[in-house]
Simulated scan of single mutants.
Amino acid sequence: MHVDHHDLQHEFPEMQDAIVALRHSNPMFERLYATYNRLTGKVEDLEEHDMPVDDFTIEDMKKHRVKLKDDLYHLILAYRAGQRNPKS
């Protein structure tokens, strides 16, 4: 089965510098990033190997992944805004 990859490098290729910087400087971002990657790996593994799983379970996992991605995206945007408008 073909599986679309949802790692942040594929999702936000234009934001790689901010992702790397945040991973090294923001513990909350790193924690969310690690959780997102673990969950993405689980979902992709289930889909790729066509493993039996309850539809509600996989949907809950995907909803959680979307929430994590949204949280990460907002942290990236805030970081980039701070880079453009540094405090004096």
Rank of each mutant, 00 (worst) to 15 (best):
M1F: 15
H2I: 15
H2G: 13
H5G: 12
H6W: 13
D7A: 06
L8H: 03
Q9C: 11
Q9V: 12
H10W: 07
E11I: 14
F12G: 08
P13G: 11
E14L: 12
M15A: 11
M15N: 13
M15E: 14
D17Y: 11
A18K: 10
L22R: 02
R23L: 11
H24C: 13
N26Q: 02
P27C: 00
P27N: 00
M28Y: 01
F29N: 00
F29P: 00
F29E: 00
L32R: 06
L32S: 03
Y33M: 08
A34C: 05
T35I: 14
N37Q: 14
R38M: 13
T40S: 12
G41K: 04
G41A: 05
G41S: 09
V43S: 06
D45R: 11
E47C: 05
E48T: 09
H49Q: 12
P52T: 13
D54G: 04
D54M: 08
D55I: 09
F56S: 04
T57Y: 04
T57M: 04
I58R: 04
E59F: 08
E59G: 02
D60N: 06
D60C: 04
D60R: 08
M61G: 06
K63Q: 07
H64G: 02
K67V: 07
K69Y: 06
D70C: 03
D70I: 08
D71T: 07
Y73P: 03
Y73M: 05
H74G: 02
L77F: 04
L77Q: 06
A78N: 04
Y79Q: 02
R80T: 12
A81I: 14
G82Y: 00
Q83D: 09
Q83R: 10
R84Q: 12
R84P: 03
N85P: 05
N85Y: 07
P86E: 04
P86R: 02
P86Q: 04
K87R: 10
